[in-house]
């Protein structure tokens, strides 16, 4: 990697100030950024580690909402977000233990990898991404591959997840990376069902609105029978064609509905 300065702020305000420096880059758990730096594919002048900010860590439950600090690791979410079982299960199946003990939800959502798990949970849950300057609805937050609504220097403080009546995340793993080749998160709320798909689309995580409509009327896997998914705008690579991913979207959605609890 190229040389860089490291800042280790202990407050959000100090972190925000540090991120104001020229070519500064926030560092969460580093599970994407550190390999990128090792490959010399990025050259920030300052890395601002968010790991020392206690205020952005932890899981809390308040009524129907689980709030997870942006600096909370996947391992902690898996262990402590039991109030939202589908979310805890998702976190517990990201990567391997080493990844789960370093990677953070804020880092994952800020990076918005098209194959990451968390974006589907946030989008399907209708979560709210709380930053140091505002609150952003998940529907407005995800803007394409590795693109989000975050501004330069904006930090994910927490993510507020409304707890659905039932939910499930079903991931079909890419054989090598074990990222989602296709992952589908289904969340059933009193006012309707939300379905978010990760791994599949060239546009990144998205809501499958036809499935949502069908499932809102009849929350059963059979309700999806008549739907078709087009492979046209799906990712096509060594691990599967767009048509294969489109097929898996339906299969995984059915499985998520069947497994939802």
């Amino acid at each position: 990697m190229y040389s860089f300065e490291v800042e280790r702020p202990t407050s959000v305000a100090d972190a925000a100030a540090a991120l104001g420096k020229d070519e500064a880059q926030a560092l969460g758990g580093g599970q994407t950024l550190i390999p990128t730096l090792k490959q010399r594919l990025a050259s920030p002048s300052v890395l601002v580690s968010l790991a020392g900010i206690a205020d952005i860590k932890g899981v809390s439950v308040d009524g129907g909402t689980v709030t997870i600090g942006g600096g909370t690791t996947h391992g902690v979410v898996a262990a402590e977000a039991g109030a939202y079982p589908a979310l805890a299960a998702l976190a517990g199946n990201i990567g391997d233990p080493a990844v789960r003990n370093r990677g953070t939800i804020g880092g994952s959502l800020a990076n918005n990898d098209p194959s990451a798990c968390y974006p589907s949970a946030a989008l399907a849950s209708g979560a709210t991404i709380v930053t140091n300057s505002r609150e952003i609805a998940a529907d407005d937050y995800f803007q394409g591959l590795f693109e989000t609504a975050l501004e330069e220097g904006e930090i994910v403080i927490s993510v507020k997840f409304p707890i659905p009546e039932a939910a499930s995340y079903q991931k079909f793993e890419q054989p090598a990376s074990r990222f989602a080749l296709v992952g589908v998160y289904v969340a059933k709320f009193a006012d309707g069902v939300r379905v978010a798909v990760t791994g599949a689309s060239e546009g990144g995580v998205y809501r499958w609105s036809e499935a949502e409509a069908a499932l809102s009327g009849n929350f059963s896997a059979d309700a999806l029978d008549g739907l078709t998914v087009s492979g046209d705008d799906m990712i096509s690579d060594l691990h599967g064609s767009g048509d294969y991913r489109a097929h898996l979207v339906k299969v995984m959605t059915k499985r998520a509905v069947a497994a939802a609890s």
């Binding site: 054989p175 090598a176 990376s177």
Partner: peptide, 24 residues
């Protein structure tokens, strides 16, 4: 039999040049 594949594209670029794409 089930996982590993060192695949080249038509330009001679190795498509599975890391563990992100080469399944051990």
């Amino acid at each position: 039999a089930l996982l590993e594949n060192a695949a080249y594209d038509e330009n001679g670029q190795l498509l599975s040049a890391s563990y992100m794409d080469y399944a051990m």
